[in-house]
């Protein structure tokens, strides 16, 4: 578990690589920009000094590497590796949102309707309604039950 948490992106990791001048050219302080970047409310390009000043070139390179998984993640900041998925269904049954939508899921039965967040189809996880996930903005809960119950580390919470 400790290892898992440490792989997550934190605002401080981003902040460290920003100019830290609080110039507010982007409209935020640097710390605020880091938080908003993590929530994908702003883009890295909005921080103009980072691109214009050659002394930040190394930082920019590191930042781009750091946030690469963030940009490829879903809106709930989760990445799913379908190749790793073995279709055990742990995530589908453990998901509180799934159970709230379809109570039969509580008994371990795979969802029958397409109203749930996700289901198992052809032996792989399949996203149906991402907006019903508890991690979905704006009411983002820091839920990661699907990640911690996954046997094969196919589900990864990015931040």
């Amino acid at each position: 578990m400790k290892n898992k948490l440490s792989t997550r992106l934190t605002p401080l990791q981003i902040y460290k690589l920003l100019p830290k001048t609080n110039c507010k050219l982007c409209g935020h302080t640097c710390m605020s920009f880091a938080i908003k970047l993590l929530q994908r409310e702003v883009t890295l390009e909005q921080c103009t000094p980072l691109f214009n000043d050659p002394k930040y070139a190394e930082n920019l390179k590191q930042l781009q590497e750091l946030i690469a998984p963030l940009l490829s993640a879903m809106q709930t900041l989760i990445q799913i590796d379908e190749d790793k998925c073995i279709g055990c269904g742990n995530c589908v049954i453990a998901c509180p949102a799934n159970v709230a939508i379809e109570p039969a899921v509580a008994k371990g039965i795979n969802p029958r309707t397409t109203d749930v967040v996700f289901t198992v189809e052809d032996g792989k996880i399949k996203m149906l309604n991402l907006d019903k996930c508890r991690r979905n903005p704006p009411h983002r809960l820091n839920c990661n039950i699907c990640e911690i119950v996954c046997y094969s580390e196919a589900i990864k919470v990015i931040a």
Partner: peptide, 11 residues
């Protein structure tokens, strides 16, 4: 399509 079975079952 097979719904609900794991990868062994789907196979």
């Amino acid at each position: 399509k097979v719904y609900g079975s794991c990868s062994h079952g789907t196979k």
